[in-house]
Nucleic acid binder design. Structure first.
Lengths: 224, 224
DNA sequence: TGTACATCAGTGAACGCGCGTTCACTGATGTAC
DNA sequence: TGTACATCAGTGAACGCGCGTTCACTGATGTAC
């Protein structure tokens, strides 16, 4: 009885599958939770199963082995990152011109990326470690859902359309912009910004975004 | 006899210490070697001892525990990175002007950083992971030897002196420049640049450095 | 509608493994007299 | 110079642990007739 009562998902509907109903997703969620608490290195498959309340080997019904579970967790992390970036784009307030709007959206994407990394440091590490690599390969995502990489590309395309980014600089811009934002996030996670208080961290982040925009859209600089 | 013959260090002089003579450094070197081969997660203290040809617990004469050994390995990594940056600065060819020389040195520092990361990926990961964090705290290095962070600062100071970097932009430049270069290195290690061939990777790296210099030294860009 | 059967998602116990760390020890080195 | 002793850097065996993974299994669910 109690088992039946328990055996519903969050929306209250009976689970479609047999016993647990959604063990695969529950394990991924537990893996992410535990990785965030202890770091990717300390994570164990047994602990994830324990956390879900299931025997250790039950995981093998859904994942070939431990690394398959970690890869799934990393993929979920990328999906969450994409979601956060999409929300940030949507939340951009109206701007007086199309150019400023494109610029605001570009910065919003970068900010969302950094905020995600700071909010979920261990998950971010997982995503860019051994098990996340597969998610970065072109063609990993199904075409239907946008991925983080594509969102950045769209933001850059908008800068070109708005006349802010020279078309001939567009091809290299993707990796350069990503690198700047990724590096800031990684250094923050490594504790480089730890001595800064909140406002100082915020200012440093804005300066980084400013440098990036300047570097991509500004005049050619001292070497030209 | 043979033991005596063996018991000399690389320079041929008899070892100053008793048995192995330099076990501490040998363990650090082995740790780095093994971490580069298997990654930081797979590294074990026992394997390092085995590699050096010493019993597992001998390591405890020199390190409190495994994490102390890993921290020492990370610190050695930072020393190697600094060395590489210094060499790169020294190798800069003469430039027609002081400004161009300052610029060339700044770029050389960034290039050396990225090259180090690509050459020693697992060590680089270790340095910016859990065990390297301590090395990034201010005051970790003794004042005598320069550290990587200080070298970057000097390169930026030279840009200010040369009139290329506005003094008011100097404070934020340090973290922004580091972030751009660090991010490029991290993405390369994550395999993002894996589809690129050598020249394309090289070009992307130069574009990143160009963006950074433009962003720091160029005109204020579209928002001003 | 009832029943026999196939499928499928879980259980519980066990395995071998390598790990970090501790223990009591040994033998080489350095030093005081 | 020789000798007794302290120190110090190693050894070998053992510990308990939690891990990933496999095995034979059980019981719930779905389905064909």
């Amino acid at each position: 009885m109690e088992y039946k009562v328990d055996n519903v998902n969050i929306s209250g509907e009976p689970r479609s599958a047999y016993h647990h109903g959604d063990l695969r997703n529950a394990l991924v969620a537990a893996a992410i939770r535990l990785i965030e608490r202890e770091g990717p290195a300390a994570f164990s498959l047994r602990e994830a199963a324990r956390d879900v309340g299931v025997s250790a080997n039950a995981a093998y019904r859904h994942f070939a082995d431990k690394s398959a579970l970690m890869t799934a967790a990393a993929a979920d992390g990328f999906a969450q990152l994409t979601q956060r970036m999409l929300q940030a784009i949507d939340a951009v307030t109206p701007q007086p011109s199309a150019a400023l709007a494109a610029l605001a959206r570009f910065k919003a994407v970068g900010r969302a990326y950094i905020e995600f990394a700071v909010a979920r440091p261990a998950l971010f590490h997982l995503m860019f470690g051994e098990f996340g690599v597969a998610c970065l390969q072109p063609g990993f995502h199904d075409g239907a859902t946008p991925n983080a990489w594509a969102l950045l590309g769209q933001a850059l395309d908008a800068l070109v359309t708005a006349g802010l980014l020279a078309p001939e600089r567009r091809p290299d811009a993707e990796l350069s912009a990503w690198a700047a934002v990724h590096g800031f996030a990684a250094l923050a996670l490594a504790g480089v910004t730890a001595p800064m208080n909140g406002p100082a961290h915020h200012a440093a982040r804005e300066a980084l975004l400013e440098m990036t925009v300047n570097g991509l859209c500004g005049s050619a600089g001292p070497t030209a």
